[in-house]
């Protein structure tokens, strides 16, 4: 903690959080490495495994003002059996909704392996009064959320008030109790890979079980370079402290091809130990249909038609 305070008073970028070293990021090298990992070609049986894995790590998400209980129930039905015509398709990892709809999702998923995730803590800006944010988290957990997605206080982080950002995440972790805490960094608003690396470290040290790229509410979302940057931060964290933190990529992931590019990035950076729902998630809404289309193509050899797959 003393290191964190030390950072707060210095004018330059943070180089350590609570004793954990933060290495600077080589932006050109990072982007080039991420791009080269995205050229990997995946064939036949590996592709089939990658598609099934993409489904198993998916957080099926609906975060719209127009979400109704019926819509969430329909989404939960899809989460259990993503393809109504083919029950060999595995269930997704979790369904992610707004707090008010957590009871609906919890009831619909009661006897299933699918977890209920809730955004909370003043999503998507994270600038509601602190008491209100903590109360929202506690409410969502009490209502049945197994996982809580909060946002980093970018206002505090970007103005150099690292201690405040840290304390809020630590408080949120307490409010979560036994539920898993995912911290959304909203990388599109952080400005540089160095800031992404620093905020990743800050969130992990403060107690995050997962760090997550984006809310999906702004234009810039997960990119391969951002995913690689955060995966490297997680690797550093694991090497320095032995703690394994999960990675969730969200926003803008729409095609099966993008999904397996991310699987390659995570697998190559963190090892296959991270390619499980416990340590890796893909937050998406429209990705599932494309994965199901590619899966059907692998099974019957025909290129598929989008209209033949469910809208929601």
């Amino acid at each position: 903690m003393t290191d964190l305070l030390a950072v707060e008073t210095s004018a330059g970028p943070a180089d350590a959080v609570a004793g954990v070293r933060i290495t600077p990021v080589d932006a050109v090298g990072l982007e080039q490495r991420a791009a080269s990992l995205c050229t990997r070609s995946i064939k036949t049986s590996s592709k089939a495994d990658a598609l099934d894995l993409a489904i198993r790590v998916m957080d099926l998400t609906t975060l719209e003002g127009a979400d109704t209980p019926e819509r969430v129930q329909a989404l939960c039905t899809r989460a259990r059996h993503p393809d109504a015509a083919d029950w060999s398709v595995p269930p997704v990892a979790a369904v992610c909704v707004y707090p008010e709809l957590v009871p609906v999702a919890a009831e619909a998923l009661a006897d299933s392996p699918v977890a209920v995730a809730s955004v909370a803590g003043g999503f998507p800006a994270g600038l509601a009064p602190l008491d209100a944010r903590m109360a929202e988290i506690a409410w969502a957990v009490a209502a049945g959320a197994d996982e809580v997605d909060i946002v980093l206080n970018r206002s505090a982080f970007l103005s150099g008030r690292y201690q405040k950002a840290y304390d809020e995440i630590a408080a949120a972790k307490q409010a979560c109790g036994s539920a898993h805490l995912k911290v959304i960094l909203e990388t599109g608003e952080l400005g540089s890979y160095d800031q992404i690396r620093q905020s990743s470290m800050l969130a992990m040290v403060a107690g995050a079980d997962f760090i997550k790229t984006s809310t999906g509410k702004i234009g810039t979302s997960a990119t391969p370079a951002v995913a690689l940057c955060m995966a490297e931060a997680i690797r550093d964290m694991a090497e320095q402290t032995g703690r394994a933190v999960g990675l969730k990529l969200a926003g803008g992931i729409r095609t099966a091809k993008q999904a397996w590019h991310y699987l390659v990035i995570v697998g190559e950076t963190l090892g296959s130990g991270w390619l499980t729902p416990e340590r890796f998630r893909l937050g998406a809404s429209s990705l599932l249909n494309d994965v199901l289309m590619q899966r059907a193509k692998l099974l019957d050899g025909r290129y598929q038609r989008r209209e033949d797959f469910s809208v929601d």
């Binding site: 050899g301 025909r302 290129y303 598929q304 038609r305 033949d308």
Partner: peptide, 8 residues
């Protein structure tokens, strides 16, 4: 063949 088999 792939053209004829394409569902779309």
């Amino acid at each position: 063949s792939p053209l004829a088999g394409h569902v779309a």
